Amino acid sequence: MNEADVREWIPGEPLERVDFGGHKTGFDKRCPSDMSDGGLKKLMWRCAAARADSGLECYVDYVECSWTERPMFSVTAGSGTAFALTFDDAWTYVNGLQNGYELAKPAKGQDELANAVGVSRRTMNRILNGDVTVTYDRLTSIATALHTRLSVIIQRAEALASKEGEAK
């Protein structure tokens, strides 16, 4: 996709990150420029962007506030809702939600590693960080399981490399 093909997002449309080439990525639809709704469409786009990048499901809506004439918003993610946010505060709140959501997700491969040795991801992280003392027998069984798993991975990689070499 070319950057010139990017058009303004319409609420309700899916949004996805695309590769423009030259190590540059962006969204396939740009943030609406119209602020006549107080920024609701822009905030809806921001929620769609968070969903496209991280999988975070969040939603924004108007909130009626008797103490101000400025548009105020609520942001909902999961079972939590933040009320009476200005446009800037709501934008910042969605950014914070997305960052926290991404940090809370396990790093790629962590769950597989923990499952391979029969411990929880939290326990595995604590062992790797030296935050928990493990008996010699338990550490030996974890090391043996890791060694077995890595041996299988190495054998598969070598077989694949051999097949690729034969195909050339």
Rank of each mutant, 00 (worst) to 15 (best):
A104I: 09
K24D: 13
E166V: 02
G130M: 09
H147Q: 11
E57I: 11
K108L: 08
W9F: 03
Y136F: 14
A48R: 00
E69V: 06
R126D: 15
K42Y: 05
C31W: 03
N125C: 12
S162M: 11
R51Y: 11
G78W: 14
Y93S: 03
L85Y: 00
V60P: 00
D5G: 02
G109H: 01
D61R: 06
L15F: 04
I127M: 05
F73V: 02
V134F: 03
A107L: 14
R46I: 14
A143E: 09
E57M: 05
A167D: 00
Y93Q: 07
I154V: 07
T92Q: 04
S66H: 08
G109N: 01
A107N: 15
Y59N: 10
N95Y: 11
S54Y: 07
A4V: 05
V18H: 02
K108A: 09
S120H: 04
S141W: 01
Y101D: 03
Y93G: 10
L103Y: 05
D89W: 10
L43S: 01
A145Q: 03
P11I: 01
E158H: 01
C58W: 01
D28S: 04
V94P: 05
L160W: 05
V18W: 03
A104T: 13
R30M: 11
E3N: 01
C47Q: 01
K29A: 10
T133I: 15
D28E: 12
R122S: 13
R17I: 08
I142E: 00
E57K: 02
Q155M: 08
A77T: 12
W67C: 12
D5N: 05
E112G: 12
N2M: 06
N2Q: 12
V132S: 07
E166L: 03
D137Q: 06
S33L: 13
W91Y: 11
I10V: 07
T92I: 06
G26R: 04
E16Y: 05
L97A: 03
S141Q: 05
L43M: 02
D131N: 11
G39N: 03
T76N: 06
N99C: 15
G80I: 09
L150E: 10
E166M: 07
A4C: 13
A157T: 04
G39Y: 01
R121G: 08
W67G: 11
I142K: 01
A114N: 07
H23Y: 10
M72P: 09
Q155C: 11
A167H: 05
K41H: 01
D89F: 14
Q110E: 13
T148Q: 13
T144G: 13
R46N: 08
D37K: 12
G118E: 14
W91D: 13
D34C: 02
T135A: 15
L15G: 01
E57F: 04
A114Q: 04
R70V: 15
R7N: 06
R17Y: 12
V134S: 02
A104G: 05
P14M: 02
I153Q: 12
T135E: 13
F87V: 00
T25Q: 11
A4F: 07
